[in-house]
Design a protein around this nucleic acid. Structure first.
Lengths: 253, 253
DNA sequence: TAGTGGTCTAGACCACGAT
DNA sequence: TCGTGGTCTAGACCACTAT
C-alpha cells in the first residue's frame, strides 16, 4: 500500500538530539558561549535529563563542548593540533614544544615496560614525569622510562631528585644518537593522577601515545604520553594546521 | 585527634567498580569468555544497573570488554596493532594491508575537504570508499577524495562506477610521485554509515586519521579514515607489536 | 548560598540474536 | 520465545564554583 516509510530504523532520541544540538552549535552559538543548563535543556526538548546528558557526552567526546562542574557547558574551540612526531626532534620533545619536567625518581617500572626496555622486572629505571602545555592549556602528561644504561654519565652530583634531576636525565639522554622511533596511538582513560594534571575528571578519554626510542640496537627509552582527547588533534609528519574532521561523517551524496 | 583518614576524596562507585572488574578480568577470566549479564552483575555488586553499565562502558572504551546486544559481554582480545604510516607505502594503503575498495562516485565533497584540496566548493571530486580488514575483522572505513587533476589519464573506459571504478582511480593515482604526507589523529564518533561498516552502533568511538598526500606542491589526495577505537592501536614509524598500555596508568611508586 | 554538572537509583520498555 | 544489552524515565543527592 501507499504508506510512506517513516523511519523503518528509528533513531535513538539521544542521537537525534546530538544532531539537533550540533547544528544549533554551528549556526547559533559562538566559541566560549555558555549553553542553558542541563535541566532547562532537557525540559526544552521534552526528554529526561539523563537522555540529554547522553547527547552532551557525545558532543563533548567530539570536542564540540566543554563541561565544567559548578560552572556550566560552553562551546569548545576547535581542537589544537599537537605535533607528536616531527622529524626535527628525534629525542623526547623539548621545552620549545611545551614540555616541562615535573620530577623524577628511580623505581621498578610496570612489568610490560620492563619487558620492552629489556631490563629485569625488578630493576629500577629513571622515571621522568613531564607535562606539556600548549596555548596556556595542559594537553599531555608523560611518563618517560630511561634505563640507567642509556645515561651512563649521570652522576649523583646532578641533583638527587625533583625537576632538576629530571632535566639532568634528559640532558644525558640526548648525548646519544637515536636510530629510530616507533610510536603507537590508542584510546584510553585518564587515571586519577593524569586526570589531575590534565585538569579533567578520572576516566576522561585520552589518546595514549607510546613511543620507543631505539639506539644502538636497544630500546634506549620508552615514553607513555596521555593527551586530552577532547582538546587535541595529534599530528604526524608535519604541520598541525589541517582542519577537516567535524563529528560523524556527513556524506556529500 | 586520632581518627584515621578514610577517603577524604571519595571515589565514585562506578570508578571503583571499574577497578575491581578490571582486576577480575586479569586474574579470573580469559579472552573470549562471557561475563554474567548486567542485571546479575549489578545485583552481585549491590548497585543499580546504570551504575554497573558506567563501569562496563569504561572498560569497553579501554578495549578490555566487548558488548553485543542480544549476545552478552565478553572479554576482548588485546588491541590489534594497525600500521597507518609505514615508510614503504607512500600512497594510500594497498590490498596487502587489508584495504578493499567498496565503491566510488564523483561528487562535491564537504566544504572543508574542498578547501584543503584547493578545489572549488562545488567541484566534484572522485570519492573512493574503502574498508580495511585485519585478522578477519573490519577495523577501518575510509573516504578518499581525489581531485580529477590527480588522475588525468582516467578514462571513461575504466569502469563507470562501483568497486572497479574505485580501483581504477587508485591505480591512476599511484602513477604519480608522492612528495610528503601529513597525518593527524583525533577522537570522533562513528556516523551511521561508518558504524555499519565497522559492525558497531552509531556513536561508537573511533580514531579519525586524516591524511594529506602532497605531490607537485599540491594536495593530490585527502584520506579520512575512521578506525575502531575499541579494537585498534595505530602504529606509526614501524612494527605494531608493542604492547604497553593497559587502562589508566598505575604508578610504580 | 545558589546554581551548575556529576553520580546514583529503581524501575520500564525496546531491539536484537539465538533457539 | 527468551535472554541479552540498549534506551529512557523521573526523580534524589553530592561536589564543585561563583557570589
Amino acid at each position: 500500500m501507499g504508506t510512506t516509510q517513516l523511519e523503518s530504523v528509528p533513531e535513538p532520541k539521544y542521537w537525534h538530539l546530538r544532531t539537533v544540538l550540533s547544528e544549533a552549535l554551528d549556526s547559533e552559538f559562538s566559541v566560549g558561549e555558555v549553553l542553558p543548563n542541563e535541566r532547562d535543556l532537557a525540559a526544552r526538548f521534552g526528554v529526561a535529563r539523563a537522555t540529554l546528558r547522553q547527547a552532551l557526552e557525545q558532543l563533548e567526546l567530539e570536542g564540540r563542548l566543554q563541561r565544567r562542574r559548578g560552572v556550566g557547558t560552553t562551546v569548545a574551540p576547535p581542537r589544537v593540533g599537537v605535533a607528536v612526531d616531527t622529524a626535527g626532534h628525534a629525542w623526547p620533545g623539548t621545552a620549545d614544544e611545551g614540555w616541562e619536567a615535573v620530577d623524577c625518581d628511580l623505581a621498578a617500572p610496570p612489568a610490560a615496560v620492563a619487558d620492552t626496555l629489556g631490563t629485569a622486572r625488578d630493576e629500577p629505571v629513571h622515571t621522568v614525569r613531564r607535562t606539556r602545555v600548549t596555548h596556556g592549556r595542559p594537553v599531555a602528561a608523560e611518563l618517560l622510562y630511561v634505563p640507567s644504561a642509556s645515561v651512563p654519565d649521570l652522576t649523583a652530583i646532578d641533583a638527587p631528585s625533583g625537576a632538576a634531576r629530571a632535566r639532568a636525565v634528559l640532558r644525558e639522554l640526548r648525548r646519544g644518537e637515536v636510530e629510530r622511533r616507533e610510536s603507537a596511538v590508542e584510546l584510553g582513560s585518564a587515571g586519577a593522577e593524569d586526570a589531575k594534571e590534565l585538569d579533567r575528571l578520572p576516566g576522561a578519554p585520552v589518546l595514549v601515545v607510546t613511543t620507543r626510542y631505539l639506539a644502538e640496537g636497544r630500546t634506549a627509552a620508552l615514553s607513555v604520553a596521555t593527551y586530552r582527547a577532547d582538546t587535541c588533534r595529534l599530528t604526524f609528519g608535519d604541520s598541525g594546521d589541517v582542519e577537516i574532521h567535524h563529528g560523524p561523517q556527513s556524506r556529500a551524496s
